[in-house]
Design a protein around this nucleic acid. Structure first.
Length: 566
RNA sequence: UGGGGGAUCGUCUAGCGGCAGGACAGCAGACUCUGGAUCUGCUUACCGAGGUUCGAAUCCUCGUCCCCCAGCCA
């Protein structure tokens, strides 16, 4: 129905697929795959690949396989195979029955290796890892052939069989392809196909002590599954020649590999190595810490999956190096949440206001709109009492020109309630800190407008000081202080933002939030979007700030500051 | 200086020989019971030098700069 809106912008991969369909290269089929290694959590960079692969297949009436590239048991764990599937599902994609594992093909791969040996195109090598490196040559000099390169086929076959049987220790032997030690493409200098690892595998258990290298497995896995378009990141461009070589020697079907640039996001890091460090060194509280760029972290932070998908559509797909501004992701998050997140009131840093002409002990219920963007969302009652809390930063005793919130003698509107006028400022005599405001309300302004037509410049959010619920609120900010921590000099961790998490406890939220379910989203009016954290308990909900609202006042303050400074 | 890739607004991206477009960010304004949302307007780009062509971001040549590759990782 709304097809034009959902059609993603054009990109070079789409053109290739369209062209392939025109020429009938794959008979009009479009089969892609998402092939994660279960050695860590998925992050926003994976989301780009997921959206690309699943989206492309869906748009061309094909399908996308889900395949774990589980060829290295020493790094892989079931925890990850589970979290990865949960994350892809959460993102909104469905692979039906098409869940595969590279380990499903171990036997087939082994058979193909035997075939290459018989054809004289692979050999068992006894060089140590150091020696292999040494023999490989350098970027500018050719390598030297392994002394074991011309072993008779029968001997290779025998040794390879015994490698599988477990007769040799880890690292003692490898199976290598016999290609060309002088190839300018280093991937073609007799690459290792199998290494010995007496390591139990999360799926095959101890059936194998011989594991295929990714380069040996990947092309054939794609081929077995009939993948038409095998999308991967740029660093695999050099490997394509090797995948093609294997497929050619084996006489197998060739998928078409297309490389695209991986995503870089500002103010964070997206390499598994660095994310793992953050987790292991406890710079964050686990993989799903809301500051992490992982899907699990973003989910906990409150980023809706639709926002992440929209982001992936907007960033496009290209081949050049890029650094996408976090502001774009935040825009997508706000754009989505704005449409459907219910609005509530919460005060983070309370300043008590006593409304002197409002009777003590009286509670008046006012009607508040749940979502101005969605009339169907209805209204809810909120209690108004003699003592309320307003946000501390909404009052200034000596307001600058552009500040039009509350000040002595000034009148403002309390959202969905009454006009409030401030008469008196009570301070701590010792510190001079404002501790309480005294004022009066105008009963005639119930609901928020004055019968006499007088206007106020500001509307403040508030909660009843007697009826509000205490809650813990976690304010998150960007994890790093610089746009591109991993390209900065020195250890990336020195650029961690020391203020990336601030906990406010207690903050005060309106009573309707009692029992809010973990994972549910709200807009705290004038403050931002918040998501209920799983750490919440019955008597103390915990809210994570997903993202702030766009803040025009903050910008005014900033530009004033800059103006003064220069 | 072996091989592979890439250079378009501040950022991301479109363009496929015919007016360089969009989004985010920024700026200005309108509107507003959220300084939210919405709406309007504005600023800003083809890495460089030659060539082909009536016409070049696009084709050709020569440069420059950036990224990737020397794991028994993926």
């Amino acid at each position: 129905m709304d097809k034009p809106d959902t059609t993603p912008p054009p990109n070079f991969i789409r053109y290739i697929v369209e062209e392939d369909n025109r020429t009938g290269k794959f008979g009009g089929r479009v089969i892609t795959r998402f092939p994660p290694e279960p050695n860590g959590y998925l992050h926003i960079g994976h989301a780009k690949s997921i959206c690309l692969n699943f989206g492309l297949a869906a748009d061309f009436g094909g399908h996308c396989n889900f395949r774990f590239d589980d060829t290295n048991p020493s790094k892989e764990e079931v925890e990850y195979v589970e979290s990865i599937q949960a994350d892809v599902r959460w993102l909104g994609f469905d692979w039906g029955e098409r869940l595969y594992y590279a380990s499903d093909y171990f036997e087939q791969l082994y058979g193909w290796a035997v075939q290459l040996i018989k054809d004289g195109k692979a050999f068992v090598c006894e060089l140590s890892p150091d020696e292999i490196r040494d023999y490989r040559g350098t970027l500018t000099e050719p390598g030297r052939e392994s002394p074991w390169r011309n072993r008779p086929v029968e001997e290779n076959l025998d040794l390879f069989e015994r490698m599988r049987a477990g007769e040799f220790p880890d690292g003692s032997l490898t199976l290598r392809a016999k290609i060309d030690m002088a190839a300018p493409n280093i991937n073609l200098r007799d690459p290792v196909m199998y290494r010995i690892k007496h390591d139990p595998h999360h799926r095959t258990g101890d059936a194998w002590c011989l594991y295929p290298m990714y380069d040996w497995a990947h092309g054939q896995c794609d081929s077995i599954e009939g993948i038409t378009h095998s999308l991967c990141t740029m660093e695999y461009e050099d490997h394509r020649a090797l995948y093609d070589w294997y497929l050619d020697q084996l006489g197998l079907y060739h998928p078409q590999q297309i490389e695209f640039a991986r995503l870089n996001l500002s103010h964070t890091v997206l390499s598994k190595r660095r994310l793992i460090q953050l987790v292991q060194e406890e710079r964050v509280n686990g993989w799903d810490d809301p500051r992490m760029p992982t899907l699990a972290g973003m989910r906990r932070r409150g980023y809706p999956p639709a926002a992440i998908r929209s982001f992936c559509d907007r960033i496009g797909v290209g081949k050049r190096e890029n650094l996408v501004d976090m502001a774009l992701l935040e825009y997508c998050v706000r754009e989505d949440l704005n449409r459907w997140a219910p609005r509530v009131m919460a005060v983070l840093r309370p300043l008590k206001v006593v409304i002197e002409n409002f009777p003590e002990g009286r509670v008046e219920y006012l009607e508040a709109v749940n979502n101005p963007e969605d009339p169907g969302a209805g209204t809810r009652p909120i209690p108004f009492t003699r003592e309320i809390y307003i946000e501390r930063e909404d009052f200034l005793e000596d307001p600058p020109k552009k500040f039009y919130r509350l000040a002595p003698g000034r009148e403002v509107r309390l959202r969905y309630a009454f006009f409030l006028k401030c008469h008196e400022v009570i301070k701590d005599p010792a510190t001079g800190e404002v501790v309480e405001l005294r004022g009066t309300y105008d009963p005639e302004t119930r609901g928020g407008s004055a019968p006499d037509g007088r206007q106020v410049k500001a509307t403040l959010h508030w909660v009843s000081a007697t009826l509000a619920l205490p809650a813990a609120v976690r304010l998150y900010d960007r994890l790093f202080t610089v746009p591109h921590p991993s390209s900065e000099a020195g250890d990336f961790k020195q650029y961690i933002n020391p203020h990336s998490l601030e906990v406010i406890d207690p903050a005060w939220v309106e009573p309707s939030l009692a029992g809010a379910a973990p994972g549910s989203h709200f807009q705290f009016e004038r403050l931002g979007y918040f998501c209920v954290d799983p750490d919440s308990t019955a008597d103390r909900p915990v809210f994570n700030r997903t993202v702030t609202l766009r803040d025009a006042w903050a910008k005014v303050q900033q530009s004033e500051k800059k103006g003064k400074g220069s």
